[in-house]
Design a protein around this nucleic acid. Structure first.
Length: 490
RNA sequence: CGGGGUGUAGCGUAGCCCGGUAUCGCGCUUGGUUUGGGACCAAGAGGUCGUAGGUUCGAAUCCUGCCACCCCGACCA
């Protein structure tokens, strides 16, 4: 194994794949397309979960759990929903194995065929709405605000660790409301929650917008999304929030009596983010030395590496460092004091850089004599010798500064790679370099398809803050009233 | 599903054309010396050469089937 990563400039996707493996985040499993999330990778996901879960609770949602299996008949109740997912479903057909009479292990017992096949959930709208039918009778039962943390399976042709896997972990919120207005507000609120999470915790600026009809969730009336820009200029959909209208209520016959004693279908939303966010996090900030993690999501925020000769020096260093570790933990900073002697300090430096630990402190005999400590920050890779006295405050401030700095860096990168284009020539030339292209579009699915076919660029979203502006579609020249964002996407 | 490629120790590989029981590096174990940017020395352990069959005195090597994976395309909320 060579010591350094492939560089982003040489081969971005190889850099990504290698980084995921080397940083010990995840690996491929024996099952095609399914990944094993290793402890370090999982701890990042856990940090994400905790922050998101708090935000969901804060906005009034409760967690629940629905089954992994969906009766086949459920899936077909909402026509466009089944159409959207049918091609990528894993199906359970039998419930028993038996010994192979010809030897050679076990075989599926043909006598154990299920009456009705079960689909491994690709998303849970259908099971959940079939329960909501029983849960909702009156406007007093509404709104119903449920979230679940679960795994889902979508049999993708081509997979990549975290970004697109056949099985992935996610949360899916499913809410029911008495009015259309309230459901739309919920959809928008959750988009806002996602955007805030992405920007404050992941330090990743996102574009909020609405999907075109082509890109809309199967079964939704409107799909809202947050789109982020990766360092290669490609777009990544980081989260979606769907206004389901009354589609699932009608498909599953979920009615309620309103205040005026009239029977009506409820209005629904669903919204989700997945382990894909871990992939987004990696691609948004990391560099050729390895991961760069935002302090708010880093499993280890500070690592302390002692440099010593002999037990006596180590004991002296421990005596100085242990109180610092204690004090930092008390302030909510996660610290690792790595005094193992299996590896040289140089090895540890490289290792913790690869793993994206935001701050590294090094302390050796020289520092012990001078009353100093060396602080290295991962984002800028700057090393500074500092007085040991007062280092605790410096660390806390620096963590905040790193969080700010990597957000700003990502923000500036996106700004530098977002362009307004006004002609087809300009569009086709510019799209080759990646980035977001803000351009006019005539609003038709045919044009959108055509552009995708010609350039591989898709409409990522119609930004929520898009200004009214008269213009001409870059492909057809037909009139348009606002710009949309095009990009090549993951 | 089309086109191309690859399967050899935990990982990365040499050997294959031209058949003689497998090379090197990393990692691992033990001991010692080291430690301010991926330490060094010594001694070790570790292999159904993807799989099934065929050719042969003899197969990692040649032939055939199968399987898996990777890349390109198709596909992808």
């Amino acid at each position: 194994m060579s010591k350094s990563l492939p560089s982003r400039a040489d081969n971005y996707s190889e850099w990504y794949n290698e980084l995921v493996k080397r940083a010990d985040l995840a690996e491929n499993s024996a099952v095609r397309g399914c990944m094993i999330i290793k402890p370090y990778g999982y701890s990042i996901w856990e940090k994400m979960q905790r922050a998101l879960d708090d935000m969901f609770k804060e906005t009034g949602h409760s967690n629940a759990y629905f089954p992994l299996f969906i009766p086949k008949s459920f899936l077909s109740k909402e026509a466009s929903h089944v159409e959207g997912f049918a091609k990528e479903c894993a199906v359970v057909t039998h419930y028993r194995l038996k010994n192979d009479p010809n030897g050679g292990g076990v075989i599926v017992d043909p006598d154990a065929k299920l009456e009705e096949e079960l689909i491994v959930r690709p998303t849970s709208e259908t099971v959940i709405w079939s329960s909501y039918k029983n849960w909702i009778q009156s406007y007093r039962d509404l709104p119903l605000l449920i979230n679940q943390w679960a795994n889902v399976v979508r049999w993708e042709m081509r997979t990549r660790l975290f970004l697109r896997t056949a099985e992935f972990l996610w949360q899916e919120g499913h809410t029911a409301h008495a009015t259309k207005q309230e459901a739309i507000e919920e959809t928008e609120q959750m988009l806002e929650v996602y955007a805030e999470f992405a920007e404050t915790f992941m330090a990743m600026p996102v574009l909020k917008g609405i999907k075109t009809a082509n890109e809309r969730f199967a079964g939704a009336d409107e799909t809202y999304c947050i789109e982020a820009m990766m360092q290669d200029g490609k777009a990544l959909q980081a989260g979606t929030s769907h206004f389901l209208g009354q589609n699932f209520a009608k498909a599953f016959d979920v009615k309620f009596v309103n205040k005026e004693n009239q029977l009506d279908y409820v209005w629904g939303t669903s919204w989700g983010v997945s382990t894909r966010l871990v992939g987004a996090l990696i691609m948004a900030h990391s560099d050729d030395q390895g991961l760069v993690l935002p302090p708010k999501l880093a499993p280890i925020q500070v690592v302390i590496v002692p440099i010593y000769k002999g037990d006596e020096q180590l004991e002296n260093i421990k005596a100085r460092i242990n109180p610092l570790v204690k004090a930092l933990k008390k302030r909510g900073v996660s610290v690792k004091f790595d005094f193992t002697d299996n590896q040289s300090p140089g090895f540890k430096f490289a290792e913790y850089e690869l793993k994206g630990v935001p701050i590294r402190l090094a302390i050796g005999n020289r520092d012990m004599e001078n009353g100093t400590i060396e602080l290295a920050r991962r984002d800028t890779r700057e090393k500074t010798s500092m007085p040991f006295e007062g280092i605790e405050d410096v660390i806390v401030d620096t963590l905040e500064d790193i969080q700010r700095n990597i957000y700003q860096k990502a923000f500036d990168f996106r700004a530098a790679n977002t362009f307004e284009v006004n002609s087809w020539d300009e569009f086709t030339a510019k799209i080759e370099d990646g980035g977001f292209l803000s351009a006019h579009w005539d609003g038709s699915s045919e044009t959108e398809e055509k552009i995708k076919e010609l350039t591989k660029a898709t409409i990522r979203c119609i930004p929520l803050d898009a200004k009214e502006e008269a213009g001409k579609c870059i492909l057809t020249g037909a009139p348009s009233s606002r710009r949309v964002i095009f990009a090549r996407a993951y």
